[in-house]
Write a protein that binds this DNA or RNA. Sequence first.
DNA 1: AAGTCTAATGACAACGTGAGACATTTTTGA
DNA 2: TCAAAAATGTCTCACGTTGTCATTAGACTT
Lengths: 332, 332
Amino acid sequence: MVFMKTQRDIAKAAGVSLKTVSRVLNDDPLVRPETRARVEQVFRKMGYQPNVAAKIMRAKKSNIIGFIADGVAMSNSSIDLIRGAQDVAWSLGKQMMLFNILAGREDGARAEDQLAQFRAEAVIYATVYHRLLTNPPRAERSVLLNCFSAQPNIPTILPDDYGLARLLMREVFAKGYRRPFFFNLSEDHCAAGLRRRGYIDEGREHGLDLAHRVRPAVIFRDGRHFTIVDDLLRDVLSEGEKPDIIICAQDILAMELYFAIAAAGFIVGQDFGVASFDNQDPVPERLRPKLSTVQLPYYEMGRAAMELACGVSPAQPTVQLVPGRFIGRESF
Amino acid sequence: MVFMKTQRDIAKAAGVSLKTVSRVLNDDPLVRPETRARVEQVFRKMGYQPNVAAKIMRAKKSNIIGFIADGVAMSNSSIDLIRGAQDVAWSLGKQMMLFNILAGREDGARAEDQLAQFRAEAVIYATVYHRLLTNPPRAERSVLLNCFSAQPNIPTILPDDYGLARLLMREVFAKGYRRPFFFNLSEDHCAAGLRRRGYIDEGREHGLDLAHRVRPAVIFRDGRHFTIVDDLLRDVLSEGEKPDIIICAQDILAMELYFAIAAAGFIVGQDFGVASFDNQDPVPERLRPKLSTVQLPYYEMGRAAMELACGVSPAQPTVQLVPGRFIGRESF
DNA sequence: AAGTCTAATGACAACGTGAGACATTTTTGA
DNA sequence: TCAAAAATGTCTCACGTTGTCATTAGACTT
């Protein structure tokens, strides 16, 4: 972009002084409307674009908010985190600078350096899964999104996994189901504990003891996650009280469960209800019967994080839980 | 970031001139080793980060490559486009500036403005689906990724949909299938025509006339896409020669087909083979039986686009087709 | 020891913007 | 017609970095 126009060029072309051009750009009321019109005419004709680098220099303020997205490439759910943040940033005249990284590689440090070099005013650290952030952020002003840190006082936005589980179970009980069983995430996943507690607490509220009606359907072994939906379903059907609905901790687990149920000779939505967490496009809408899920509030979380980063919403409590909502379809 | 150190601060602290600090930073061999050591000592102590804005000003060169991603939020497949581009950019010392937009909103123009203001050296325009770009890019130097334009001479990276179809059918025939049927995308999707041609041509190569053994499984009506997998399967089973394998134009269509096949009382991989296009995580791996697909070469396409944008690979032919590869699993 | 050469270091300018201080011109109103 | 007010212009500086050129320190020659 060597041939970019400067205010000086505009001034010459419009037959006014550099200062007048500057006044027009910065909405100085001292400019006569006709002069303003003439200058703006030239802006359009010559295609002037202000030089952000010079602006940053001059203002000692970058208007840049960094967004470090860890592992977003692995899942599409968290893209809504980005969309939410982006929308807020633009509406505030801020520039969001986005980095997709994979934790464990040097990506992260590199992204942080880049942002520091652009003098980003704040940095949002986002993860795909709700989890603990091991190495804390270096930026002076940061916001944690979908993750949290050992060190306190960093503003943090988290999904209300506990509340989400209760919300889902309220719907389940409202439809008359009384023998739920919960196919949970593996216990190393920190949403697992929260959801289990919400599931059990909401059960107690309805006079049920669900403490033994929840088991992980994903296990972590040799550094990898394996799903054991088939085995788990077999176990659950052979022992104890047969469930009337199965809750899955992820849509994709629900998909596997659909196959497992069919393989066992049953029909989803008839012999068992199925419910799940995530509402991760496009799976729930395309399953038959369509899957009823609770939606993780990623878009709203992204918005909230950017608002914190930009200092719109005041400090708030350090950890902010964002509620989700129920998406009712056909599976229960 | 008000309290950022500058080279001037470092110079004062180290008792040398501003220029010497600059020399140390730019690996100028003219600096005496002891001086260099002293200055670097101060760097570490004071935590210097160069100011990119000033660099851009001074150099009149931004090292920034823009990436405008249209609709990435709608699908996770194209994230690999971004990963590929990002990896190349970093390895070249370039800074990729990423924008997620939705065509039809003002997002696009805004992103282009932002990039012009940052004096981006080139802009990559990427779309989720292989399609025609209606309003052409404004940037002087641009690359089209997964889309193409009416105006010629813009370097363009496209998936080789035709070749992908032939590749897939070669595998199908190699496994002995002789009565394929192709559940294609809707005809408004420009991959549909290419894949159909590849499908038919590869069939002819094996002595089969497949011109009438392909139909759209997705229809476009009232501005929306609907899948008609169930209806189509019923039709195909009731008329003409019963297929021994069904090819789906998307993994998610294949998922629907699994259900439709089960509903019709058949077993996937036994009564019919199923094959598909995309290899879009996590669906193919989690279906039972696991789905064999051809993978769209998104990562490589992203790399190729960034290489073009950075001027690494010479001009090439204007349109560059990137081949995909076959991912064999269990479904045929 | 004086002179010469080179290695090392320093001073300065410029990039584009925006603002302050102030001068000059134009317009408005009595 | 003149004074006041409004509009525009001139000039200067600062932001942080790095290329050009000038200067100094040290080493080497005679």
